[in-house]
Amino acid sequence: MTDSDLTVAAPGVSDTTSGAPGAVAPSGGRRVRGHALWGMVPFFALIVVFFILPTVVLLFTAFQPASGSGFTMHNVSTSLQGAYRTGLINSAKVSLIDAVLAGVLGLFLAQAIVSSRNRLLKELTATAAAVLTNFGGLPLAFLFVAAIGNAGVVTTLLGDHLGISLSDLGFDLYGMSGVVVVYLYFLVPLMVLVIIPSLEGLRPQWREAALNLGANRWQYWRHVATPVLLPSFLGALALLFCSAISAYATAAALTNGTLALTPLQIAAVLSGNVLADQANVGAALALDLMVLIVPLTALYLFLQRRTARWLQ
């Protein structure tokens, strides 16, 4: 028997080289955590430069008079009157319609994807939804103009062969109805991406238990699935509304500024197409959007966390 076989650890001293429960963590552990915090510095710097600082400047400018320093409510009151009020109402109307339509259509599409047994189809549709969600701006506007514009391919075919005119049906691609239709192109895929995890979280045991207790499919969806999915669905609607009301490039390229929408009016202010005494109204318009978007974003996060509790 060697001396190493008789070695016994002294009381209060633990072996730092073993993985025993009593092992003391190496002294370099704090250094690792310190280096990890230093690695977060670029992230916090990004948040400060591109989020916190612009927000502070926006709030300061919205209540600053055009003459210089001081405090005034003139900019905010001006942003809620006349053409600016019309633009805010139009933006809210378009966003609400798009949120409801995209929410319903995306929910049914997501359910069809989740219930499909074809794994390849699921992967393709999920990839397509991720791509289409980020497709917007000038390319999207050009796509619709080339398809259903005044001289578009689909418009020409319908008029020449079927005698159908989209304008006679009340559809104007360059007006509010056109913006609503075009926004659905990227809002429906966004709804699919948001709601699929919640649909996949519905446990098969819940449906089996409902069927064993004598419930039919409609009763299962009404009393079991809908209460679980409702917070997630409402949160998705809030997210869709925020995404639609903040969209700018697509509407600008499609309407060329002829439709009164708040993002377009902010762009007009920034480009100098306003009077000198209204130079700070653009910040007030952005503040109006923040008042709508921030509570809805907080609601979306709250409802997502509530849904996660049920689906865990």
Rank of each mutant, 00 (worst) to 15 (best):
V32K: 11
V32G: 14
G34R: 10
W38D: 02
W38M: 12
M40W: 08
V41C: 03
V41R: 02
F44H: 02
L46E: 01
I47H: 03
I47Q: 09
V48A: 15
V49S: 04
F50D: 09
F51W: 08
L53V: 12
P54S: 05
P54M: 08
T55V: 03
L59F: 10
A62L: 08
F63L: 07
G68Q: 01
S69F: 07
H74R: 11
N75V: 12
T78C: 02
S79M: 02
Q81P: 00
Q81G: 03
A83S: 06
R85E: 07
T86R: 03
N90L: 05
N90Y: 10
S91I: 00
S91W: 07
S91R: 10
S95P: 08
S95E: 05
I97Y: 14
V100W: 12
L101W: 00
G106D: 07
L107G: 09
F108L: 15
F108K: 06
L109A: 14
Q111A: 13
A112V: 01
A112Q: 01
V114N: 10
R117N: 14
R117K: 14
R119A: 09
L121I: 06
L121S: 03
K122W: 02
K122C: 02
E123H: 01
L124T: 13
A126L: 14
A128E: 03
A130T: 09
V131S: 05
N134M: 10
G137S: 13
G137N: 09
P139H: 04
P139T: 08
L140K: 03
A141R: 11
F142I: 15
V145W: 09
A146S: 15
A147G: 10
A147N: 05
N150Y: 09
G152L: 07
G152I: 07
V154G: 13
T156K: 13
L157G: 11
D160M: 11
H161E: 05
L162I: 05
S167I: 05
S167F: 02
S167M: 06
D172M: 04
L173H: 12
L173V: 08
Y174T: 15
Y174V: 05
M176T: 15
M176N: 04
S177K: 07
S177A: 11
